[in-house]
Design a binder for these strands. Structure first.
Lengths: 349, 349
DNA sequence: CTGAAAGCGCTTACAG
DNA sequence: CTGAAAGCGCTTACAG
């Protein structure tokens, strides 16, 4: 079923069929158009995008590179990307790299061979620099979600301000000693969140101690483990701020397993606002990322770049900045004896 | 950068370059091969898959159709699909349909135009029948995860046995009155899980009552809402079985908000074993689906079908059956006063 | 062992 | 307004 079949059926040339298909205001006699449209419908014809792409040098396909879709942080971002993409007629190919160099390399190759029009890279951490030089050479547009190591277009979020806001909330409740469970320091996201914690400790005059800063890896396990270490301490903190929700969930579990009641005996704050954390009990206070919007904005930015193919590589890299919001739920309260705890339940999804 | 450039660089014809590229044991003089390989490397050449696909009639791309990647049930399945796919050189295009007919139709079109080699459909529920006749006509292979409405190849799981096992566990603990929160009855998955509940109620001689069967929609909200209804009842059940984990999480929240302690005052069981439910406290007892393996098996099945392109549509549709496992954690215990509750913590993620 | 040529299914100047 | 023809970047009989 090709364009020739349609042409034969309608008794016109393939050029004419192509013209009614693309419908770019090219003059066509109404009667001719009618015949072609009928033939297309009769044959249930759908143009082969491969042939089209070969000629036009675009595939209406983009690649989405993420560490792992199984990490609850990524599905929402992905959904934002995909909704905008499908709305504009683009398909998206998913690539889980596990932040592994070999897998990243593999996907760079696949994506290049498939002639994707552009790429969205979320998660960062890996040294994509060399791989991207290749993309740049091929004229493929790239947008990062998060801070790229080179000046590429990106969608960013004030991670440092996020932990600062969380700490301000805790300080306001009266907490003096707040433990921090950080993420992998290879990720700028994790570094920024730690920086915010340190800044807030200083600014609010809270207890500063290396033993209050624990090294997590963004997994539930590490959150559990590091919370246990913090809580074992004789002078245990009255609150724990985890650099992401998964570790906060682990911390909540560790507290429960020690018989501590959150938020009465311990306050816990997370970061990200992934699905479900508003449904655990106590509902988690956390710094919400506009994940869906981040994905949607990245796709919109990519689409913009695709419009102006001619931009030189020296064009200033556009950056979209999106805000972060502290969502106070039920896992935070004044430290014991400091005051009445008022925690209304938040049923936001 | 095309194959002609490489041919020119190596001083051979494009046919020869193509032959060393594809390396199908076609005889080539070692010296010639060396020159070609060098030229390829020097120019960092990567063949255009569009041109290749146009000729070969395959794109090494498959479509994955799911209701919503944001639903924690799907990322793990998707990961299984993608790992097998990338291992075999296939790329996967993601399609979120929200079980919406228009979106499904849209993706059927997109996928057909992009000439995907095959399709994996997870989630079911929508009437894809007509859309699939089109795929069949085009020779596109389709594999379902879950029970298809027509005899198509599929990967299945014994949903009814799953709820039966959960109920047996509850009955064994001594529960006589178990509430059930079901899913959308348009989904065979939900119907099967309800059927298992009913069968078990009968087989174990438990209290049977329409008021114990509540209509949920698989969302946390509905789990919360329906659990509230069940718990408001004067003769409230001592255990609740939810047809999926998201509703079980909602039920756990509803219990907590009523001041009920799980599992002492109420036992709760879920279904799916999505990420995080082993980390909430109490850790959720649930019927675990082999989600990753389901995705991987679906992709392997699709790959098999792709090998035998010649199979007529009358070939028996292959079915892969995978088991389901009851994972007992801390949200279930004997009803109050019936015996000591022993719940060891399970840290499996 | 190697190359010239046809062809996959489209689009788009160019000519009429 | 419409069509013949070239060409996108490959692969593969066919010939030598």
């Amino acid at each position: 079923m090709t364009i020739s079949d349609v042409a034969a059926e309608a008794g016109v040339s393939v050029a004419t069929v192509s013209r009614v298909l693309n419908d770019r205001g090219y003059p066509i006699r109404p009667e001719t158009r009618r015949r072609v449209v009928e033939a297309i419908e009769k044959l249930d014809f759908r143009p082969n995008e491969l042939a089209r792409g070969l000629l036009l040098k675009r595939t209406q396909t983009i690649g989405l590179v993420i560490p792992d879709i199984t990490n609850p942080y990524y599905p929402v971002i992905s959904r934002g990307v995909e909704d905008v993409a499908s709305d504009r007629g683009y398909a998206v190919i998913f690539c889980n790299t596990d932040r592994d160099a070999a897998k990243s390399e593999y996907y760079v190759n696949v994506l290049l061979q498939k002639q994707v029009d552009g790429l969205i890279i979320a998660g960062g951490g890996t040294d994509f620099t060399r791989a991207f030089e290749r993309f740049a050479e091929h004229g493929t547009r790239v947008v990062f979600v998060g801070k790229p190591s080179l000046p590429w277009p990106s969608v960013r979020v004030p991670n440092e301000d996020g932990t600062v806001a969380a700490m301000a909330h805790l300080a306001e409740l009266g907490h003096q000693q707040v433990g921090f469970i950080g993420g992998p320091q290879t990720l700028s996201t994790a570094r920024d969140r730690l920086a915010g914690y340190r800044r807030a400790v200083r600014d609010h005059g809270l207890v500063a101690s290396p033993s209050l800063e624990r090294p997590g890896d963004f997994s539930e396990q590490s959150g559990y483990r590091e919370a246990e270490r913090l809580l074992r301490d004789t002078r245990r903190p009255t609150a724990i701020l985890a650099a992401n929700d998964r570790m906060a969930i682990g911390a909540l579990a560790a507290a429960a397993d020690r018989g501590l009641v959150v938020p009465d005996d311990l306050s816990v704050v997370g970061f990200d606002d992934i699905p479900l954390v508003s449904y655990v009990r106590p509902a988690l206070t956390t710094v919400a990322l506009p994940a869906y919007e981040m994905g949607a904005a990245a796709m919109r930015l990519l689409l913009d770049l695709l419009q102006n193919k001619d931009d030189g590589p020296t064009a200033a890299a556009p950056t979209v900045r999106l805000p972060v919001t502290l969502v106070v739920r039920d896992s935070t309260a004044p430290p014991t004896g400091t005051g009445p705890s008022t925690h209304a339940t938040d049923h936001r999804r």
